[in-house]
Design a protein around this nucleic acid. Structure first.
Length: 602
RNA sequence: GGACCCGUAGCUCAGCUGGAUAGAGCGCUGCCCUCCGAAGGCAGAGGUCGUACGUUCGAAUCGUAUCGGGUCCGCCA
């Protein structure tokens, strides 16, 4: 069902083995870099391979001459896949050593047929071979609602997971809850002060390390509902602010607060249509002694020691002083300095917990891990990569995707990220304003490592400048054509199955064939995007499909014989409807990866 | 001072893991609706891919150096 490029690559490799058998090529050559691709310039044919240039060195032959031999061997073979129904091709050699392949249109028509038969499963691949991949994303601290930056990571992670699934990987979506450490203490104290306020205490201004957000008022109310005045002591906030309170309430409030914050976050995620297979708790990990166990692993390999770090170059922290501490030999794995595992109060650093966490993920079967982080964690990538290498002896791979900042605009004017009235701060407000589908698509219209401007006016505009609208409109237009066709040819079977049986040879206009070629590239695009861990490529591809489709539609304005629906010619109409449905299928298939609902009408 | 990310058309950005004459949208210029598919269409101008060396059949892509912008920089997660 397939990928025409993959099919031809196999054909090329078969031709090469013919040459090897005949002694023209040495045995056991490296074929990894041999590719079959669409040439950028259509005049070079339909497919192109670099095989001769890749092998020229190894075979000690002139690339052009080798290309001729490969082309000849290729001509002696034929496409045996049933899809192609014996359609032929020609191979010719071009300048540096390319072999350009031209297909009979029937080969392309077969691709369209395959797309219709597959439905939104078109493009599904098995390159993943069911291998397990763990995608950890969002992992926003449970201290408040999500903001827009989290939203980007959420969408990128979710779409990447979906893409990998489409490519045949067994994917686990995971959220790491940072529910241990100082921030959770601060959260509980902040909640406690809000709770005191409910009893009429006037606490005045909050100190700097407290969370001032209004959302904690609701949480405090829920706490009061549950526990009444159980924790209330009049004007206790004075002691809390000074840090001298008798904090018997701290532990229970922590648990309560984290649970409430996670409920908040899950709601935000649900508004984006995101759910996780697994939530992992840092606290649970720490309490289970996972850090000690993980550091034992490193210790056995001599990677943990007590030492004194050089002071950081340049500007020093105010209170920096040399001090012996427990360190991980990150420098052995490419990091700049060895990294601390314990703080001055002898508690674990976040990094120590993260080491344990990644070992945990690995042992659960994730020898391929992807972490999606915000750009502010960029300085952290090397040490975690170093830890993963050290823990697994290089058996595991970790790919960290850093998402750059999202800046909000409205009609070109920056939207302040402050709590002022009328401005958006939380992810939820943005999603409620523009809708889940718009937000998700726009977050995927940039590479993750590229900063993104998000303009409320532009992303909701109904014009071709707006990529979401443009792609959605293509799907809606296809649906509209089908509705009209159903009226025009009442009683005819216009199901995809029926359309797949149409005489597709009638699709002979260059614009039609160009569109079919583009659609045929979908399986290949899915594979390459999945391998590169780059879901944004789908967004650009979908815009291209939409553009070609809109173009074809528009041609029908000037040339009536190119319209999709030709009243007096059911045979031609059915063939063209097959193409229309092919477009809708690919667009829907791509939007499904993005978690965006295809529009039936605009 | 160091690390990471970015630098491609006036603007916003792609560029399929090293392929052929570097692309798209917006903007700009010029055409195209007395009527049916103009929330449009066609054509054109616009580039030393930040810069300089290097690697090889071949570099926007890989390496080194350098310049500019962003992010981060023991005991924050």
């Amino acid at each position: 069902m397939g990928d025409i490029f993959g099919d031809f690559r196999r054909l090329v490799l078969a031709a090469l083995s013919d040459l090897a058998a005949a002694g023209t090529l040495p045995a056991g050559v490296d074929i990894a870099r041999i590719a079959v691709e669409p040439p950028r310039d259509p005049s070079h044919g339909d497919l192109s391979t670099n095989a001769a240039m890749v092998l020229a060195g190894q075979a000690r032959q002139n690339p052009l001459q080798l290309a001729e031999e490969i082309a000849a061997a290729l001509a002696g073979r034929e496409l045996i896949t049933a899809d192609y129904r014996g359609s032929g091709f020609t191979a010719e050699v071009a300048r540096p050593g390319f072999i350009n392949i031209r297909l009979e249109p029937a080969a392309w028509h077969a691709q369209l047929r395959a797309a219709l038969q597959a439905g939104t499963a078109y493009g599904d691949s098995d390159i993943g071979c069911g291998r397990r991949v763990n995608v950890e994303f969002v992992s926003a601290n449970p201290t408040g609602p999500m903001h827009v930056g989290h939203g980007r990571g959420a969408v990128v992670g979710d779409a990447l997971a979906a893409l990998l699934m489409k490519a045949g990987f067994a994917v686990e979506r995971e959220y790491y809850i940072n529910d241990a450490g100082a921030q959770v203490d601060a959260l509980a104290r902040s909640l406690y002060v809000r709770y005191l306020e409910l009893f009429g205490d006037d606490v005045g201004d909050y100190p700097k390390d407290f969370y001032p957000g209004d959302y904690l008022i609701d949480t405090a109310r829920k706490l009061k509902e549950r526990d009444g005045d159980k924790w209330y002591r009049k004007n206790e906030h004075i002691k809390v602010f000074k840090g001298i309170s008798d904090e018997t309430w701290l532990q229970p409030l922590q648990e309560f607060a984290v649970a409430e914050m996670m409920a908040l976050i899950r709601d935000d995620l649900a508004a984006l249509g995101i759910s996780f297979d697994r939530f992992s708790s840092e606290k649970a990990l720490v309490e289970a002694g996972a850090i000690d166990k993980a550091l034992d692993v490193l210790d056995e390999r001599g990677l943990v020691y007590t030492g004194v770090l050089e002071p950081p170059k340049g500007k020093l922290p105010d209170d920096w002083e040399p001090r012996p501490q427990l360190l991980f030999r990150a420098t052995q794995f490419g990091d700049e300095v060895d990294r601390p595992l314990k703080k001055s109060d002898d508690s674990w650093t976040y990094f120590a917990a993260d080491i344990a966490y990644h070992l945990d993920k690995y042992r659960r079967g994730g020898d391929t891990m992807i972490d999606v982080w915000g750009a502010d964690h960029g300085g952290y990538v090397k040490r975690v990569n170093a830890a993963v290498q050290a823990l697994t002896n290089g058996a595991a791979s970790l790919d960290v995707k850093l998402c750059q900042l999202v800046s909000l605009f409205d009609n070109g004017q920056p939207v302040r990220m402050s709590k002022r009235a009328g401005t958006f701060v939380t992810l939820r407000e943005v999603v409620d304003e523009v809708g889940k589908d718009v937000f998700r698509f726009i977050m995927l219209t940039r590479r993750n490592d590229q900063a993104l401007d998000f303009d409320f006016a532009k992303v909701t505009e109904q014009s071709k400048d707006n990529p979401v609208f443009y792609v959605q409109y293509a799907h809606a237009r296809a649906a509209s054509v089908m509705r009209h066709a159903a009226e025009e040819f009442a009683g005819a079977d216009l199901s995809d199955a029926a359309l797949a049986g149409a005489n597709l040879a009638l699709l002979s206009d260059p614009a039609e064939l160009a569109l079919i070629r583009l659609l045929a590239g979908w399986p290949r695009l899915v594979e390459s995007a999945a391998e590169a861990h780059e879901p944004h490529r789908l967004a650009f591809y979908l815009q291209e499909v939409a553009a070609q489709f809109h173009l074809l539609w528009t041609k029908g304005r000037d040339e009536a014989q190119l319209r999709f629906i030709i009243s007096g010619d059911p045979g031609l109409t059915v063939a063209r409807l097959a193409l229309v449905r092919g477009v809708a299928t690919v667009v829907a298939s791509g939007l499904a990866v993005f978690g965006v609902t295809p529009a039936e009408e605009m």
